[in-house]
């Protein structure tokens, strides 16, 4: 089987400071990988390198495109990478405001991504937007309201609807449940899990919340100071961590 995403020796430094160094892994279709580590460990830098938001200094990010097969997204042309960002890739930001257009209605936010891939029939677009609002449990009566009138949890769900409406194959998530209260988190996690299974999505989730990765991720990578210190099956890394830092991370979680 061809990996959906093959990351090879990705490195990025900011001057003399290391962002992330020599990260390699393969992600297969339907797999969800979690990346954990304390703040400053380089997990967001890595995610942004993978998603094409920042250019890595070194390394390749090979994505199995629908038409041309495996292709290095670091060296591909900007329009090509942007097209990928609108179709097969999705990016869920930690702050919904970064991933939404706050001045446009909820329906418009979802519809915009559909129009970006060529949909033009207003009725169809509105119908699909309403369907997705329903799937992320936003009352369809709110379709014409702006996201500024939504709660934080609703904004986050709207951002997910906007991202998934075009049927991407790979979703990047940066702290998708960060800053939400626990009851909203649970709901969002349940939703994400269902979507991942039903749509056969692959996902890379950056978080510092170990409970989130246990529920969502099949595999886990632990990062410290820009390096991957441990990687493996999620429950194995959490229940039997091998590296000193992973042990510290797991044992530092407060029991409820």
């Amino acid at each position: 089987m061809t990996p959906l995403l093959s990351v090879q020796e990705i490195s990025k430094s900011y001057g003399t400071h290391i962002g992330c160094a020599d990260v390699s892994f393969d992600l297969y279709p339907g797999e969800v990988m979690g990346i954990v580590g304390e703040s400053g460990s380089g997990k967001s830098t890595l995610l942004n390198c993978l998603a094409g938001h920042i250019a890595p200094d070194f390394g390749r990010v090979v994505f199995d495109t629908r038409i041309d097969g495996p292709k290095d997204t670091v060296t591909m042309s900007e329009p090509e990478r942007r097209m990928l960002g609108r179709t097969d890739w999705a990016f869920v930001h930690q702050h919904a405001r970064d991933g939404l257009r706050m001045g446009v209605s909820a329906g418009g936010n979802v519809g915009e991504r559909l129009m970006a891939v060529g949909e033009r029939h207003y009725g169809d677009i509105r119908h699909k937007a309403a369907d997705w609002l329903d799937r992320v449990e936003i009352d369809t009566d709110r379709i014409d309201d702006r996201p500024t009138t939504f709660s934080g949890g609703m904004q986050q769900r709207l951002q997910i609807a906007r991202n998934l409406v075009t049927g991407p194959r790979l979703v990047f998530m940066d702290e998708p449940t960060g800053g939400l209260d626990v009851s909203v988190q649970a709901r969002l996690l349940d939703l994400l899990r269902g979507l991942v299974r039903d749509m056969g999505l692959s996902a890379i989730i950056v978080t510092h919340d170990l409970a989130v990765v246990r529920l969502l991720a099949d595999r886990l990578m632990v990062m410290k100071s820009g390096h991957v210190v441990e990687a493996g099956l999620t429950d194995q890394v959490l229940d039997d961590p091998q590296h000193a830092y992973s042990q510290l991370l797991v044992s530092s979680v407060l029991q409820v």
Binding site: G232, L233, D235, Q236, D239, D240, Q242
Partner: peptide, 9 residues
């Protein structure tokens, strides 16, 4: 048992 399940390394 956990080793057999792959939960422990």
């Amino acid at each position: 048992m956990r080793m057999i399940y792959g939960n422990y390394l």
